[in-house]
Amino acid sequence: MNRKKWIGNIVKYTLYALVATFFIWAIANSYFDYIFTQSGTFLVLLRQHIVLVLVSSILAILVAVPAGILITRPKFKKAEWLVSNVANLGQTIPSLAVLALMISILGIGFKSAVFALFIYSILPIFRNTVAGIDSIDKNMIDAAKGMGMKPHQILFRVELPNSAYSILAGIRTAVVLNIGTAALAYVVGAGGLGVWIFTGINLFDNGFLISGAIPVTLLAILADYILRKIEYIVVPKGSRRIEKA
């Protein structure tokens, strides 16, 4: 046990040291300068990025969670494997291919990017919703029925609270992935911080690259943090899992 902890700590602090070194190196070379010298552009790109992520994530949640709930109802149980497989298949298509397809349908711009990101976020949320609900002890549902709870009462008072952890974890995964993937929105002309990242790559300009990539990373870390806090508030105390790492 102790040995494991030691190794864990060494890895952790080594990583911290690397990150710190990186920042010192980047600042020393004034790679972050664009954020300040072109702060107007930066804020526009940042806003575009956040809007892309928010709109596509919210749409994905609104579709995937109800879909997950619906597919786990007894009536649709038989269709579950079919839907899951189709959704899985969707995930294996490369993001650029989805983008390319969207451009041909929706044209270049915001809509295509949002749609592609939306498609991408659906699966993790859907899968975790289904897994969360399916993992609930069947005896518990049986007890709920036997006590005379109506289907909607079972859903809202038993199934959802006890799968909240899994559903929110799915949303968190989707949003964090989404923040990274949204950098590709540049490709369809939907802006976002990807603009600077790709400019940096094309011009071999570390300044643009880092001024674009670091905010994306920080955004992902921030989203992860906020969503974990929300999880802590929303997941009922009794069904919270002992999952401290």
Partner: peptide
């Protein structure tokens, strides 16, 4: 069925308590 069940106590082996409730 719903009313009937509310008038009948039901106990199962695995207790079926809801972990999210006190």
């Amino acid at each position: 069925a719903i009313e009937l069940r509310r008038k009948i106590g039901y106990v199962i082996q695995s207790n079926g308590l809801f972990p999210n409730m006190t």
